[in-house]
């Protein structure tokens, strides 16, 4: 538990989350969501949850973003909000 880093990353996580929600482009949102999961992975690592961090790393980097992109590929990037 490294609290200084913890605070910093927590703040970043919020930014990432808001960004992923606000971007008017689904591909961008998917990519930012990837960044969000990077942050989360860091956060778990900071809090000592190595296994969770590992899972988040592999899932966030390897799988869930790709799923998103695949879904966006088959639908559309357009979004009104």
């Amino acid at each position: 538990m490294i609290w200084q880093l913890d605070l910093l990353i927590l703040t970043l996580v919020v930014f990432c989350g808001i960004g992923a929600i606000m971007i008017r482009d689904l591909l961008g949102a998917a990519i930012l969501f990837g960044a969000y999961s990077f942050m989360m992975c860091l956060l778990w690592a900071i809090m000592g949850a190595v296994d969770v961090a590992f899972t988040e790393a592999s899932v966030g980097a390897g799988v869930s973003t790709v799923f998103f992109i695949a879904a966006v590929y088959h639908t559309t990037r357009r979004t009104k909000d």
Binding site: V50, D51, A53, F54, T55, S58, V59, A61, G62, V63, V66
Partner: peptide
């Protein structure tokens, strides 16, 4: 060490 079936499986799938 950290890791296990789930993480490894995801990496293999990836």
């Amino acid at each position: 060490s950290p890791g296990g079936g789930f993480q490894g499986g995801v990496i293999l799938g990836a």
